[in-house]
Every structure is written in C-alpha cells, then in structure tokens.
Design a protein around this nucleic acid. Structure first.
Lengths: 190, 190
DNA sequence: ATTATCTATAGATCTATAGATAATGC
DNA sequence: ATTATCTATAGATCTATAGATAATGC
C-alpha cells in the first residue's frame, strides 16, 4: 500500500486541510487523529508517518489556516487597495463567515484554545497574527506607520470579537445585529 | 458522611465556583468532573448528587460566570454612571484581565466553545449576553435606545476581540499593544 | 429512615506504537 | 531494499453508575 513520493506530499497536504477545517469547526479537543485521517481518506495509523503527534499537527494546521486567510487578504488588498479593505471587513463581518467557521478566521474559532497551549503552537500562531496585522496596517488610514498598526489592531479586535459573540448567540436575531453594529462601527479612511 | 441541607447548598455553590474558574482557565474539555470536585473539596462520585451531568454543570457554570460579570458592571454603572463605563472598559482591556481568565469575561474565554455546543448551554449563554448588552447600552452615548444598543454591541465586540487576540499573542510586547490600541479606539460620549 | 458523600469500577474514547503488508524507486 | 500505509492493540483518561457508609432530621 505504499504510495509515490509525490502522492505522499499530496496526502500530507490533505491531512493539513482536513485538520484545519475540523479543528476550526469543532475545536482541537473534539477532533481525534482518527477523525482527521478519515476525513483525509486514510487510516488512523498512517498519521504518524506524516506528523510526530497530534500537537504537532495542531500547530501546523492552525498556522496554515491563518496563513491562508492572510494570503487571501493580501491578494484583495494588492488589487483593490483601500476599497479592498472595506470588502475584507464586510466579508469577515457577514452571517456567511459566522456560519462557516471551518474555512474562516482561525483567531475567532481557535484563539481562546491557542492561548491555553504552550510553545510551538502559540509561537506559530502569534507570528501569523503579526503578519495579518501588517497586511491590514498597510492600507489603514493614519499618517504614521505606528498609527496605522494601532488602527489595524483595533480593527482586527473589532472583527474577531463580533464573530465570537455572534457565534455564541447562534441563529438569534441579535446575532445578525451584532455583525451589523460592528460593520457600522468600522470607520475606514475617506 | 452526609452533610446538612445548608451545607449541601454551600457545597453546590462551591462546585459552581470551582467549575466557573477551571472552565474559563482551561476550557470545558480540559477539565474533568474529578478536577472540579477536587478543587471544590469533594470526591468525584459526590458530583452526581448535585448535577445530572458534566454538560448540565457546564451550562450552569458558564451562565453563572457571565451573570456575575454583568452584576459587577451594573454596580459600577449604578454608582459611577458614564464614568463607570470608562472604568469598565479600561479594566476589561487591561493586562490584568488578560492574565487572569479564571475570574474574567466568559465570552472571551469560552465563547468559541459555547458556540459549538447545543441547546441548554447556548440558550443560557445567549440570554446572559443580552443582559450584558443591556447593562452597557443604558450608559452608551447615542440619542435613541436602538443606537445605544448598537453602540454597546460594537463596544463589547471590540473588548472581547482584543482580549482573545492579546491572549493568543501571549506575553509578547504586541499583546500589550493590542490592548492599548483597543482602549484608544473606544470613544465614549463627551 | 433518609440521603449526601465516598469507594470502586464499568464502558467508552483517544493517543501512540508495534508489526505486517504491498507498492515504489534505485 | 525501502517505506507509506494498514491492522490491531496497549495504556491512559474520562464520564457515569452501583453499592457502601455515616450523619442528618422527622
């Protein structure tokens, strides 16, 4: 049942993708290695040929998920500039994002859990948050780099908090209102 | 080893308090019934005389924790009015709160996990978030009730997101900067 | 007599590993 | 020959329960 060197790389990527989705949907503790492997189309035992432990997978998958979000944002910002910023904010603060955590922002879905983990995962995650803030800061209003970074931090906090609250509220009307209130509160340059 | 009716009520409260602290510190899944009972000074088996299941405890403990935060806020607001609002915001967005999740805001520590749970817990938690928003809205700037509620939602989102991000960042300098940026971004009436 | 708590354990679940299997790639 | 994957399982952990114990309260 051995597969080719190329196929193995594909399989590893498939495990990372499945893990990224499942972890964001259910949280680290409610996803077993066997769940991830089933989702990726392999057996439980094959996992340990790709990763040293569940913890190592969690670190890679969480960072990988955040990285993909930042990459998407950078694409939008590079092509649409400040208008892209508004697009990112409105998309983040949408019921669609709230209802699809599996492909959404990992800070909102896994941030609290990451903060309880030590070492590897924490470091990787913190680094990716830094990248994300830099991406936003480049297009924030403000006359100094420092001010723009500050604005980016406040904006990201506004967005993450709104999604966390709206998800906790569930499908209630108030949930949509929280998203709308946050969208309205975000003032972007001219 | 039977205790008095009164003592039993005290014991139940002690379980709730221990659970509230441990759940906020480690998350629901990383706390066992035995951990809670050890912390409360009883044995594992005694738990099921007080609560039907771990899930029932989680629902009560999470709602209870949020309720206590809202009660504290209402006390401050009743005595200090709009000035109290600034006090609440600055205290929420402090390194002290970031570093002490066990007694802090349950939305920031447990919000994401709550949103993955069904029924009881979700409902109780959503109701408490509503109470919390009402407490804030009463003292928010704005000329209509609707506008104040909207402002309260945006404020709570700003605060929750900043704590989630700052905790994920750990003890890095950027963590303090996020809190400071959020404090600065919160504009309260006159 | 009632019942809150304790001791002990059943049953389920999860991570990680050991050894077998079979396809790749030198 | 090498090695990615599979089967099977050991060992740990956790929820919930059963039966025993001992103090309360009618």
């Amino acid at each position: 049942m051995k597969v080719s060197r190329e196929q193995m790389a594909v399989n590893r990527e498939r495990i990372l993708e499945a893990a990224g989705r499942l972890f964001r949907e259910r949280g680290f503790d409610n996803v077993g290695v066997a769940d991830v492997m089933r989702e990726a189309g392999m057996t439980h035992g094959a996992f340990y040929g790709h990763f040293a432990s569940k913890e190592a997978l969690a670190a890679e998958a969480a960072a990988h998920a955040l990285e993909k979000t930042t990459a998407r944002w950078n694409e939008i910002l590079d092509s649409a500039g400040e208008r892209g910023l508004r697009e990112i904010v409105d998309s983040y603060l949408s019921p669609k994002h709230r209802d699809a955590p599996g492909g959404g922002c990992a800070i909102a879905s896994l941030g609290a859990e990451v903060s309880r983990q030590e070492s590897e995962l924490r470091e990787a995650f913190a680094g990716e948050i830094g990248q994300m803030l830099e991406a936003l800061a480049a297009y924030m209003p403000g006359n100094s780099q420092e001010h723009r970074k500050e604005q980016a931090m406040a904006l990201l906090a506004q967005m993450v908090g709104a999604i966390v609250i709206s998800r906790a509220l569930g499908r209630k009307a108030m949930s949509d209102e929280v998203l709308a209130a946050a969208r309205k509160a975000v003032k972007l340059g001219s």
